[in-house]
Simulated assay, not measured.
Amino acid sequence: MAGGWSRDGAVQEQIDSTVEDALKRARSELPRGESRRHCEECGDEIPRARREALPGVRLCIVCQNECDKRRTAFSGYNRRGSKDSQLR
């Protein structure tokens, strides 16, 4: 059911687009290339199993966890078509 000026299925298209954008962003952040033997942050050796499981890894597990904690949440775009969301 369409509401206001939107056509049928518009809400689902917005949801799908938001999910696709999030997937693209997450995939772009994945490490690529050859893994480092030593962590860029602390210099500790990165275990072989981690290097093989995640090609392109640059940080040890401890430093990666700290990096993940510092990372801020991504809010994305306001894709809602309602007049209220556009006026805020």
Rank of each mutant, 00 (worst) to 15 (best):
A2W: 09
A2V: 03
A2E: 12
A2S: 11
A2Q: 08
W5D: 06
S6K: 05
R7C: 10
R7V: 11
A10E: 07
A10T: 05
V11W: 05
Q12M: 13
E13A: 09
Q14V: 08
I15A: 02
I15K: 03
D16H: 08
S17C: 10
S17F: 08
T18R: 14
T18M: 15
V19T: 08
V19W: 05
L23K: 13
L23T: 13
L23C: 12
K24R: 15
K24P: 00
R25T: 04
R27H: 10
S28F: 06
E29N: 13
L30W: 06
R32V: 11
S35D: 13
R36V: 04
R37W: 05
R37E: 13
H38M: 09
E40H: 05
E40F: 06
E41Q: 15
C42S: 05
G43A: 08
G43F: 03
D44Y: 09
E45R: 13
I46P: 00
I46H: 00
R50G: 02
R50D: 14
R50Q: 09
E52F: 02
A53L: 11
A53W: 00
L54P: 01
I61W: 10
C63D: 01
C63Q: 01
Q64L: 10
E66W: 06
D68L: 05
R70V: 00
T72G: 15
S75D: 10
S75C: 07
G76K: 01
N78D: 14
N78P: 01
R80M: 08
R80Y: 11
G81P: 00
G81N: 03
S82E: 04
S82H: 13
S82Q: 09
S82D: 05
K83H: 09
S85R: 11
L87R: 11
L87W: 15
R88S: 13
R88L: 13
R88Q: 13
